[in-house]
Write a protein that binds this DNA or RNA. Structure first.
Lengths: 249, 249
DNA sequence: CGGTGACTTGAACCTTTTCAACAGGCGTGG
DNA sequence: CCACGCCTGTTGAAAAGGTTCAAGTCACCG
């Protein structure tokens, strides 16, 4: 288990990502979740050329921050990341968590500057997509363009849900929603929906959900006492996803 | 003052929008804020053809809801809108307010279905952009494509800030931030940054900021007592924008 | 094995919500 | 044009959900 901590991948292919830094898009286990989906074979080969596959970053590595000049958007290849925005007074908000196949840095496109910071939560790798070239390619690959817009739109839609969560949900509903969201994303990636590692700290979860760490801690305890989940440090098992769903509000 | 309630436009041109439903993009006062910015003259003329300019909607008109089938994204031409997302239990969150030149419905692109509802806050008009055609055009107009991505990206970035606001700011900071944001947007549109009409209700503001109506009401009173603002029903004057800015956190 | 940071637990506190009552605008219809 | 009624907004008092503070435990890493 080199870079991704999440137990045994159900798709054998997914293991490949961990070991080969230079695997091509068409052979990548993430293909069906990733940008190239729907591209013609030739186009894909071309796109493949411009993608820069990173070496493994250690936990806590900053992919970019607000001082980094904007040239690329990133796709998580293995591991996981968090993004944060900061206020002048130092307060920080965790705006999202990102897993393999998910895009980071799209909110930087319009200003051509990163407005946020991205940090790895564990040993991780990314595919770097130089934005200029991506845009050039889009001009001749309508499918690529559609994919990019689609990605942006999906994140937008997710953020609206997150706004609802932050603005309207109770602590209990927030955590239940969060756990199921993570579960779903692991499942989509061929991992168990019930048992997984929370790669982020309790502090990160609390921050992301607009709660205090203590509240998260208490909720974990209560959920466990109620037989909804079982936690042991970073590991978590969803014991009653159905009841958890009902708690989402 | 037919459709837009916001006092006297500083740009004379802006008044035109109010009266001529079929004004072309290149003659539109919103041009510099809108999608066509940067398009070549010929391309613009082509784009112009596919844009459907709406008649005036009354206050409370639903531009779309989750049952509407997705065909178009919209640009506000005059007036203002709010978008909301709903939970199964009926709870609703106001995810944003939209003013002339701003885009509505971009979060629907990826699923080809509206996940939210858009309602006019006053008598308003929109430009409807059929999405299929927009995508066709984008294939041959790189500038259009860039504009669309840019718009999506900007909204994304704004939503991250909103998440920070909802998750980390106090009631006071939330309202101060909100007022300055609205002020800025009016200013960008050639209206006074200091004096304007809040076209949305206190309830909408409260909901959007994740607060109770009573809290908003109390804050308005307090801000007024402190000489920061002056309110009379929907009308508001920012008396001390500097101090307001310091309250934003 | 020891130290440091992450997590947990308890208790007091506080900001915001909820409940309740009232005032004020606005639109409708007489 | 005024009166009525309803919805929106305001204000006060009580309640609560979550935070903060404080202390202690636990896991991980050098």
């Amino acid at each position: 288990m080199a870079q991704s901590s999440n137990v045994t991948p159900l798709f054998n292919d997914l293991a490949k990502v961990e070991h080969d830094h230079n695997i091509a898009c068409q052979d990548c286990a993430l293909y069906r979740l990733c940008l190239p989906l729907g591209l013609h074979r030739n186009d894909l080969a071309e796109l493949d050329e411009i993608i820069q596959r990173s070496q493994s970053f250690p936990r806590g590595h900053a992919l970019f921050n607000t001082d980094t000049s904007f040239h690329s958007i990133f796709v998580v290849r293995s591991g996981s990341f968090k993004t944060t925005v900061q206020a002048v007074d130092g307060r920080e908000h965790v705006t999202g968590f990102y897993f393999p196949g998910e895009f980071i840095g799209m909110d930087a496109i319009y200003a051509k500057a990163y407005k946020s910071t991205a940090k790895s939560l564990e040993s991780s790798t990314v595919c770097e997509l130089p934005f200029e070239k991506l845009q050039e390619f889009s001009a001749t690959m309508p499918q690529l363009q559609i994919q990019l817009m689609s990605r942006l739109s999906r994140e937008l839609s997710g953020d609206k849900s997150l706004m609802f969560l932050l603005g309207k949900k109770t602590a209990e509903e927030k955590l239940a929603t969060f756990l199921l969201s993570i579960s779903k994303r692991f499942q989509d990636r061929g991992f168990s929906a019930a048992d997984f590692q929370l790669t982020m700290s309790r502090g990160d979860i609390a921050n992301h959900l607009g709660l205090a760490v203590e509240t998260i801690s208490r909720l974990f305890t209560r959920f466990q006492d109620d037989g909804l989940i079982y936690t042991k440090n970073k590991a978590i098992s969803l014991r009653d996803a159905e009841r958890l769903k009902q708690l989402c509000g």
